[in-house]
Amino acid sequence: MRSLSRRDIFPAFGAAALAGIAAAGLAKPETLTAAPVAKPEGYSPIIAARNTYQKARALIETMNVSEPPEAIPGHPDYPAWQKKQDALCKTMWDAVTFLSREPSKTWFDIKAKSEVANLEFPEYCQSFVMEEDADEVRLAISLINDVTRLSQDLV
């Protein structure tokens, strides 16, 4: 029996290693490791509506910073400014309408709804002179705040 030398061993190991690398390159990712799990919030229409709402709200807030001249009635650019403002408000209201009618399917959906409700409901109470001291209103606001706060751990 012949003794093995480094010249015999290393080419054999090299060939086996190259074959393993080639096989790994052709293999599907699921066979090597678990496939990455898609985020559940990635495809939700509720998450999309929340994002649309937040984008429109942010644009309105930037438009209203320090009362720009075009926000004053009588300014030549006021009609265009008002039209843009109205369109953004309609976008927000449409998102809220959708969120109020679409049932949540995941905790991520509930989190998204609570984020919007946490902004909208207190403002609605102030705008329509609802008694913020009323126990029913305080309960609703407290519940919305709790869901929003507790759902921060979902991310």
Rank of each mutant, 00 (worst) to 15 (best):
Q54H: 05
G74C: 12
R149I: 08
W93Q: 08
A34S: 14
P45E: 03
A34Q: 14
K105V: 15
S44M: 00
D77L: 15
S100M: 09
S66V: 01
V96F: 02
S114A: 14
I141L: 10
Q85F: 11
L143C: 06
G25F: 06
I144M: 06
A19S: 02
L150F: 12
A117S: 10
C125K: 01
V129R: 02
A56G: 05
L99F: 08
I60K: 07
P103W: 12
D8A: 15
Q126G: 01
L150V: 10
V96H: 02
P45G: 02
E61C: 01
A80P: 07
Q126R: 11
S66N: 11
R50A: 05
E123H: 02
A22P: 00
S142F: 00
A48D: 09
S114N: 06
E136A: 13
W107G: 14
K55N: 12
S142W: 00
Q82N: 13
M63C: 04
D94I: 00
G14Q: 07
I21P: 00
I110N: 10
P79M: 15
Y124E: 02
F108G: 14
F108R: 12
T52F: 02
L150T: 11
E61M: 07
E67N: 11
M63P: 01
D133S: 13
M92Y: 03
D153Q: 13
A71T: 11
A38W: 00
A16Q: 08
F108Y: 10
L139H: 13
E30I: 14
K84L: 12
V155A: 14
L88W: 01
P36K: 07
S151M: 03
L59C: 00
A35L: 15
I47P: 00
F121S: 07
R7C: 14
Y124W: 08
W81R: 06
K28F: 15
Q54W: 04
A15S: 09
D109Q: 08
I110Q: 08
S142T: 04
P69C: 04
K83D: 08
V65W: 02
A12Y: 08
P76W: 12
S100Q: 06
L26N: 07
E41D: 08
